[in-house]
Amino acid sequence: MVWPIDLAVLTLVVMVAIGSLMVKDLLGAAILFGAYSFMMCLLWTVMGAVDVAFTEASVGAGVSTVFFVGAVFRTSRRTRD
């Protein structure tokens, strides 16, 4: 638990979250959401929750990104907001 890293990663997390909601392409949103999950994983490692970080790395950054990409592939990439 090192607080400068914690503060820096927390700020980055908010920026990536806003980015994944602002981007005008659903595939881009899916990939940015994967980056967001990975930052969260980093954050939880810093806080000492290794089991949660491991789960997030395999589930959030891995499988859920694949689910998003699969769903976008089956529907459309187009979005207006």
Binding site: A17, A29, F33, S37, M40, F68, T79, D81
Partner: peptide
């Protein structure tokens, strides 16, 4: 948000926020 996939992304961000609170 108007797009359904964007709504789902928002739902997941909400969920991660709660997890962040618990881990904190």
């Amino acid at each position: 948000k108007n797009n359904l996939v964007k709504k789902i992304v928002g739902m997941n961000i909400f969920q991660t926020a709660i997890i962040l609170f618990y881990v904190s």
